Structure formats: C-alpha cells, structure tokens
Simulated scan of single mutants.
Amino acid sequence: MSRLDDDLAEAARDEMERACTLGWRELRRHTPWGDTFEGFTPEGRAVCFERSYLWEGEPGGDIRVEVHVYHPRAYEAGVRLTRAIRREPAQ
C-alpha cells in the first residue's frame, strides 16, 4: 500500500468512527440519508468524504454505514468502508 493509500485509509477510518458516534435510536429517523463534503486527510490532502446511512435489509432493522473517501477526480480509486449499527431491542 502506498503512502497515499495509507492516508486515504486513515481518513476513512477516522470518518467511520465519527459516522458511528450516534446510536441506532438517533439514526433511525434519518435513515436512509447520505451526504458528500470536502475535507482533508491526516496528511493535508484535499479529498471528498461521502457518508451514507442505509437500512441493511428491511426498514427499521440494522443500519449500514458506508464511508467513501476519494480525491475529487479519482472517485473509483478511493477507500470504502462499511459497518453495521445493530438495531436496539424494543423497550
């Protein structure tokens, strides 16, 4: 893996941690939802961050979090991460 790839991967991991700070209860009202914004990698490279919250299966179930970090002109060469936020039991 190149230094550039390492930088993108680190930015994606950081963004995934931020994306998962809200729990299922907070996110359920906003799923499905997505956003793309510009920012910087840990080494200062200008990149695009794409974050999505999608239902893993049926609406009301687990939420799939997707993060994609890429250079503005290199969408396909970016780093993609996916994680699930499990549905909280009904109380």
Rank of each mutant, 00 (worst) to 15 (best):
Glu43Asn: 10
Ala46Arg: 14
Arg28Glu: 11
Leu27Thr: 14
Arg28Phe: 11
Arg45Leu: 03
Pro32Thr: 11
Phe49Val: 08
His30Cys: 13
Glu38Cys: 14
Asp62Trp: 04
Arg73Ser: 10
Phe40Pro: 00
Ala12Gly: 03
Ala19Gln: 07
Arg29Phe: 15
Arg51Glu: 10
Ala9Cys: 00
Glu38His: 15
Ala46Val: 15
Ala19Asp: 02
Cys20Leu: 10
Arg28Leu: 09
Phe40Tyr: 15
Trp24Ser: 05
Gly57Met: 03
Arg45Asn: 01
Glu43Gln: 09
Gly61Tyr: 11
Asp62Ile: 04
Arg73Glu: 07
Leu54Glu: 01
Arg73Phe: 10
Glu15Tyr: 03
Leu8Asp: 05
Asp14Tyr: 05
Arg18Leu: 02
Glu38Met: 15
Met16Gln: 10
Trp55Val: 01
Leu22Phe: 15
Asp6Gly: 02
Ala11Ile: 00
Glu58His: 09
Tyr53Met: 01
Phe49Tyr: 13
Ala11Met: 05
Ala19Cys: 08
Trp33Leu: 09
Ser52Asp: 13
Cys20Asn: 04
Thr31Phe: 11
Val67Tyr: 07
Leu8Lys: 01
His71Gln: 05
Val69Trp: 01
Glu50Trp: 13
Arg45Cys: 00
Val65Phe: 00
Glu10Leu: 07
Val67Cys: 05
Thr36Pro: 07
Trp33Arg: 13
Arg13Gly: 02
Gly23Ala: 13
Arg25Cys: 11
Asp35Tyr: 13
Ala74Trp: 15
Glu15Met: 06
Ser52Lys: 10
Cys48Thr: 15
Leu8Phe: 07
Ala46Asn: 14
Asp7His: 06
Trp33Gln: 12
Val65Tyr: 05
Asp62Leu: 01
Val47Ser: 02
Gly57Leu: 06
Val47Glu: 05
Val67Met: 07
Thr36Asn: 12
Ala19Val: 06
Arg73Cys: 02
Tyr70Pro: 02
Ala9Phe: 01
Gly61Met: 06
Gly60His: 04
His30Pro: 06
His30Phe: 14
Leu8Pro: 00
Ile63Cys: 00
Phe49Arg: 05
Asp14Ser: 11
Asp7Pro: 03
